[in-house]
Design a protein around this nucleic acid. Structure first.
Length: 855
RNA sequence: GCCGGAGUGGCGGAACUGGUAGACGCGCCGGAUUCAAAAUCCGGUUCCUUUACGGGAGUGGGAGUUCGAUUCUCCCCUCCGGCACCA
């Protein structure tokens, strides 16, 4: 055979394969009742400008799964779109003085091209862009359905207010309590906003977690986020007044240990005290001049101030002081908590700081001593110092106290959720308009015509949304009266768009309905892939939206994402020097020379520019500021898309962080060249090796087929799948060319390797499939199956341990019984030496694995 | 602060259900090929000890369960993700 195959040239492979996929519309799919469907979706990107390595990793994972499932016979849908509303476009618009629309659409065009150059198997005919009216008109319509059903309502909520720029700030725009652009201390301000009743679905979302094939860690985070608890809602009378304060507690058994109540600075009872109490006014003002970020609030020092009121203890009538505390949140629960310092660590610290009493009312059930002066005792136990309730355990005390207070109308048993309703109003321009109209007569009236189109020609200047003063948008007529009315100028949280895009991919182009029957064919998403940073918020909102759409009859399954694979970040090496200002000056990896010792350890690094040393820092998330980013386009130009994809899959398990390494990338490229040379050798009938018998190679082939199939399907362990393919290629280089079956085994192996490698590196395998005369299109070639008969070995190697330490290995016939294995073990020379004539006390034989001799 | 996760050679990682710690790749060392280099190929590579056969230690730290623990339990340390207006 003298067929010529080309040299390994990624650019040639990529051009040929990508042209074929595009022209043949290989990845465009339609509903097909004959085949099982598989909907594979990777979280769609925000069009920030260009793809980064995190994107490459993310979308390669999805592409590998989609291509693999297709070869397993599924009708595979893998769409792509753009999460194109959001803050970065506004920031770019402020910087460039151009409308965010222009910037966004230019980014999308660029990034679409980058996806194609990476060889992604997307069905581009379904592409959607969330900032376009043909998409967002349907979420506007759906929102008005939620309004009609009472699932959307308006209430006051707190925002970060920048008093200089006169605008609302996102939490990430508040740095050390100041606006990021103005530098002014931010204030908390209450404004009316739209909320969605996600809490109506809290119990269902909690229960349905059990049906999902998601990592336990993510399900646990969601369970804790929903935070179901059973407790008691208790009402305290303010002493000498008609006012009341209601608190919720999961520990009513500790009620006799309550020593004070703590309320939020925004609590309605606080305002009335401000005029007469300057210290309180000062404290509350301090609390209000800070961010609304709970992460920041919870991390700061606990502080409080007496409110100057007391409440009557509902059991004893004794007065308890009321404090205002900076860690109590008005937006959560009733904005007031009952504090039991002896049995809650946070209350204990607060009471210690302000000299409040710490009465112990719970003691360990096992009679152990606890010292409350050392810290709170937070376990459940038996009641003490609680009068008639003494010696009761948690359940009995809960029941007794609840019953007594309920009889007095002072309390109610209650199931509570930590989950809160979803605030969807944003005071921003670059978002989907909330389709409501302010009618002087009827108040808030839902729009009836969609889309309510966002004007795209405006450019924000940093002083709030330009929509507010834009008459062509604001001025309208009321659908109820036909009289002049004003449009709502707030826009939706961008999580609104990302909560249902997965469904719209199934009904592209429908301008009559949000979704149609096609969505019922494709949903749920069989495999969802995306960053674990979305484990709670995005995934909770989308799950809620799906159930709301189900109840509207738009979809007919209960959950949107059957299986979920979270993926880790991409890190890069960091090099820097400390500068005079106390900061760091970073160096890009290609600006640094590395010196190693003879064991390969890095001993020094110097800047190429001046030869002076730089610090080798820890690996950190790739970013512009750390100068440790690697541009995917540069990597593709250097070694080709196949090697970039392969390295991204090989270097780490999907859910762990991945450390980018140019040397590692070279290794992936080297492997593909090695593979390609093997293809050339087979085609030329010119095998290289001389060591291994064809039968042994064939067994290795079938072991590899079994492992790779399992790794890619059940385990989703793509790094080990690639490692197994590398091992098999190494083995093939040792195949004895003189063996009569060598040519057949080599060809069988290489066809299988080509198929198994195709999801990772689809371009070179596309060329190889043609060179090897593979039958049909590689994308649809049936995934190889292993022959179990070939995996059965006739002898087994056992480890022999003496007292748990490895002392020898023995080869034993596969069918040997325990006695035979033990006899062989004690015959081993080194094993005998360690037994040293001592009597055997115990012998453990693990079939097929090891023998442990205890002496 | 609260919730979740991670920590294994010089580096990325493997060990799937409690049973050979270090597969595969990088780096490094040695060799082949070459006028030379690149590329490629072959061999070696956890640490300590030993001429060698061997022996000892070892999976962030400390306890525990077990014949046997990277794997299970408890405590601690460090780093990462999320905390409701970044996406």
């Amino acid at each position: 055979m003298s067929t010529q195959t080309p040299d390994y040239d990624p650019a040639t492979f990529e051009a040929a394969a990508q042209t074929y996929w595009r022209e043949q519309k290989v990845f465009e799919v339609t509903e097909d009742s004959e085949r099982p469907k598989f909907y594979c979706l990777t979280m769609f990107p925000y069009p920030s400008g260009k793809l980064h390595m995190g994107h490459v990793r993310n979308y390669t994972l999805g592409d590998v799964i989609a291509r693999h499932k297709r070869m397993c016979g599924y009708n595979v849908l893998q769409p792509m779109g753009w999460d194109s509303f959001g803050l970065p476009a506004e920031n770019a618009a402020i910087a460039n003085r151009t409308p965010p629309a222009q910037w966004t659409y230019a980014n999308i065009d660029h990034m679409r091209g980058q996806f194609e150059s990476l060889g992604m198997a997307f069905d581009w005919s379904r592409e959607l862009t969330t900032c376009k009216p043909d998409y967002y008109r349907w979420e506007q319509w759906f929102f008005t359905r939620l309004v009609d059903k009472g699932l959307a309502y308006k209430k006051n909520a707190t925002v970060n207010w920048d008093p200089v720029d006169q605008t609302v700030l996102a939490n990430e725009q508040v740095v050390d309590g100041r606006g990021w652009r103005s530098g002014a201390p931010v204030e908390r301000r209450e404004i009316a906003q739209w909320f969605i009743k996600t809490t109506d679905y809290a119990q269902e979302m909690l229960d349905a977690l059990d049906t999902l094939d998601w990592p336990d860690a993510v399900k646990t985070m969601q369970r804790n986020w929903i935070g179901r608890s059973e407790g008691l809602s208790i009402t305290f009378d303010v002493s000498g007044s008609d006012e009341q304060i209601t608190v919720y507690t999961t520990r009513p058994d500790t009620l006799m240990g309550a020593s004070y109540l703590a309320v939020a600075p925004e609590h309605p009872l606080v305002d009335a005290q401000l005029d007469s109490n300057p210290d309180l006014a000062k404290f509350v003002a301090e609390c209000r001049s800070s961010t609304v970020s709970e992460a920041v609030l919870e991390a700061q020092d606990k502080a409080g101030c007496p409110l100057g009121l007391t409440v009557d203890h509902p059991l004893t009538g004794e007065p308890l002081p009321v404090w205002v505390a900076n860690f109590v949140l008005m937006g959560y629960g009733t904005g007031a908590v009952m504090s039991v310092p002896a049995h809650d660590q946070r209350d204990w610290e607060f009471a210690g700081k302000y000299g409040l009493p710490i009465p112990q009312v719970i003691t360990p059930a096992d009679g152990a001593e606890v010292d409350i002066s050392e810290g709170a005792y937070t376990e459940r136990g038996l009641l003490i110092n609680s009068g008639e309730f003494d010696r009761l355990d948690f359940d009995a005390a809960f029941a007794a106290i609840a019953t007594k207070l309920e009889a007095d109308g002072r309390a109610q048993r209650q199931v509570n959720f930590r989950l809160r309703d979803w605030g969807v109003s944003r005071q921003r321009y670059w978002g989907c308009p909330i389709p409501m109209i302010h009618d002087a007569e009827h108040g808030e009236v839902p729009a009836e015509e969609f889309p309510v189109t966002l004007p795209e020609e405006l450019a924000p200047d940093g002083s709030g949304s330009p929509l507010k003063d834009y008459a062509p948008f604001v001025e309208t007529t009321s659908p109820k009266t036909g009289e002049p009315a004003k449009r709502e100028t707030d826009t939706f949280d961008t999580f609104f768009e990302s909560s249902w895009y997965y469904a719209r991919f199934c009904s592209p182009g429908n301008d009559q309905a949000m979704l149609d029957e096609r969505a019922k064919y494709w949903l749920p998403v069989d495999q969802y892939i995306g960053g674990v940073e979305h484990a709670t918020m995005h995934l909770m909102y989308a799950r809620f939206f799906h159930k709301a759409m189900r109840d509207e009859g738009l979809v007919d399954c209960d959950e949107p994402f059957a299986r979920y694979l979270p993926q880790g970040m991409v890190l890069g090496d960091c090099y820097f020097r400390d500068n005079a200002k106390g900061g760091k000056d970073y160096f890009a990896p290609d600006e640094v020379d590395i010196t190693r010792d003879d064991k390969g350890r890095v001993v020094a690094a110097t800047a190429k520019a001046d030869g002076q040393p730089v610090v080798v820092g820890p690996q950190e998330k790739m970013s512009k500021s750390k100068r440790n980013g690697v541009d995917p386009q540069d990597a593709v130009a250097a070694v080709g898309a196949d090697a970039v994809r392969l390295f991204a899959m090989f270097a780490a398990p999907p859910d762990q962080t991945l450390v980018w390494s140019d040397a590692g990338l070279e290794g992936a490229s080297r492997f593909l060249k090695r593979y390609w040379r093997l293809v050339q050798a087979i085609v030329a009938g010119d095998l290289p090796g001389k060591e291994l018998a064809a039968a042994d190679v064939r067994r290795k082939l079938h072991e590899t087929i079994a492992k790779v199939g399992d790794d890619m399907g059940r385990r989703q362990s793509f790094n080990t799948a690639v490692a197994a393919l590398m091992e098999l290629v190494n083995t093939l280089y040792k195949l004895d060319a003189a063996d009569a079956d060598a040519a057949a085994v080599a060809r069988e192996s290489l066809l299988a390797i080509t198929q198994m490698l195709a999801p990772f590196s689809p371009h070179v395998t596309h060329a190889a499939w043609a060179a090897l005369d593979g039958a049909g299109a590689l994308e649809d070639a049936v995934w190889p199956e292993h022959d179990p008969a070939l995996l059965v070995a006739d002898t087994v190697e056992y480890m022999v341990q003496v007292n748990g330490k490895l002392r020898g290995r023995i080869a034993v016939p596969a069918e040997a019984d325990k006695a035979a294995v033990e006899a062989a073990a004690v015959a081993d020379e080194n094993v005998l030496r360690h037994i040293d004539g001592k009597p055997l006390r115990r012998v453990i034989v693990v079939p097929g694995k090891l023998v442990n001799l205890v002496v």
